[in-house]
Nucleic acid binder design. Sequence first.
DNA 1: GCCAACGTTGGC
DNA 2: GCCAACGTTGGC
Length: 140
Amino acid sequence: MAYWLYKSEPFKWSWDQQVAAGAQGTFWDGVRNHSAKLNLLAMRVGDRGFFYHSNEGKAVVGIVEVIREAYPDPSAEPGEPWVVVDVRAGEALPRPVTLADVKAEPRLAEMALLKYSRLSVQPVTEAEWGIVCRMGGLGG
DNA sequence: GCCAACGTTGGC
DNA sequence: GCCAACGTTGGC
């Protein structure tokens, strides 16, 4: 099982909207970056990821689970290489973990969130996953 | 193939 | 609103 982090501006697609989408989930669209695309292609059903609000909020607010592996992005032009995965909302974090919280935790200094701040879909290591979950009030 | 210009993202 | 990072584009 691998771990990921998905960034979304909350006024485009928010955690509340993801929760409202329910168990059937939604596709994660709009990725137009090749590094992010490679991450989408590497995802497997059951992988979990953090839902991060960029710009407004700037915090990890919840957890999503991959329920369908990569397939062509319905919002892309025919012939373009972009893909989506389907995700559904899991637990919300009892305490959102803010960007400032991440920066203040030395064990998270290597997180892609800090090192590749513009990458919209990022890998998260198992260690980082556990640390952020505990900071957010989940068991891990 | 190099590199400057430009657009986008996202933190501040 | 500003600016740094970085990907893309286009002239040469």
